[in-house]
Design a protein around this nucleic acid. Structure first.
Lengths: 206, 206
DNA sequence: GCCTCAATGTATTCATTGGATACATTGTAG
DNA sequence: CTACAATGTATCCAATGAATACATTGAGGC
């Protein structure tokens, strides 16, 4: 371990090794990303902010793309944990549980609006396998909830998987809507609840 | 007009003025964008491809962002025209008309998958006013269809506008799903039809 | 206790980029 | 035919992504 001199910041001796450069870079990258977008993100600037040399980040991320991929993957993991936690405490009928799910999902999208575009990277751009896997895992959760409800007869059967896709699309679309601010002044909770209830009830006149 | 020598490409005299640099740049930009994403897009490379100097593009787009905004706006206009055209020929009940609408929308998203992320730019990044307006216009169309159907009593009334948001979210989500390839091997037409029908019927067991 | 070695940072270099500024060429309207 | 606005060009600069060679560190085997 190095001798650190915290007395005078001007002459403070920084240890040769940062300690947790990787996570520091990721955290700061998410900040910058939220403020200035992908174009405004510079590896060198991240290095400067972390008080480290130009090429240090390369030890952790071979590439700018690699950093973005890591950020996206981390995003899926965080999302997954929050969804699991939320579902554990969710009670009530299918609608209520779906609302909890959707709300958690949309809240995450709002808090990490910088991450979503990375997570939704179109498949045309070559994707990390790990990223694809994380994607699948995240979307497996709502589907599980739906299938369990179907097994209990709480919702109509679905032979073709089209209903599943509808829920997925609705969730995805909600995040985009909220991220782009298209919900106007409609409170987030009202929006989500309304969408799920609408999906449950259908559009046909009663 | 300049004298052009098309005989020998090596010594061909190019006119001082390109003629339609702006649209050439936009077209080529969309190509590159589809292949290599925003990061892989370079103004200079566009200039080279167009056979024009480094700084020529600046006459038409003050900024790289300006080019992207123009691309997004153009995208909304094209989308609007296609939606209008599709709706004119659409016949049948609400479901059928909604399906036509959704299919047109998703088809556009697939054909121009490079454009969608630009069009869905989060509001946190300062947006061109023209872009916001184009956005509103594009989303006004499906809402109009929905409201007309409601006036005729084809779908249930909606006091809070939550149903409207549900349709919007579903449309948005569909494009994201398709763009990221999450539909798997499900044919596009089946997917869209299934989603709209599911939305009409609702999830509740019959 | 010492030595090797893998992990992690640093120093330096290079081509490319976005952007700015001053200048050249053109068609056109008066 | 001349002045001018539009459109390209030439040239410069700081910053970036990326690559390569070198330095520092701590941990594990001896």
């Amino acid at each position: 371990m190095n001798t650190l001199d915290y007395g005078d910041p001007m002459t403070a001796v920084r240890p040769y090794h940062h300690g947790n450069l990787r996570s520091t870079l990721l955290r700061e990258a998410e900040n910058v990303l939220g403020e200035r977008g992908v174009e405004g993100l510079s590896l060198r600037e991240l290095a400067r902010t972390a008080g480290v040399s130009n090429s240090a980040p390369r030890r952790h991320f071979a590439d700018k793309t690699a950093l973005l991929d890591a950020l996206a993957e981390e995003g899926y993991e965080r999302l997954g944990r929050r969804l699991d936690a939320a579902l554990k405490t969710a009670e009530g009928d299918v609608t209520a549980r779906l609302v909890v799910f959707a709300r958690t999902y949309v809240e995450f999208a709002v808090e990490h609006r910088a991450l979503l575009p990375l997570m939704h990277r179109p498949k045309s751009e070559a994707r990390d396998d790990a990223l694809s896997a994380a994607n699948d895992r995240a979307f497996a959760a709502p589907l599980r909830l739906l299938h369990e409800a179907r097994d209990r007869g709480d919702i109509a059967p679905d032979t073709s998987g089209r209903v599943d896709m509808t829920l997925l699309a609705l969730l995805q679309g909600l995040t985009v809507l909220v991220a782009t601010g298209m919900n106007g002044d409609l409170p987030l909770d009202t929006l989500v609840t309304g969408c799920i209830e609408t999906l449950m009830a259908g559009l046909r006149p009663c």
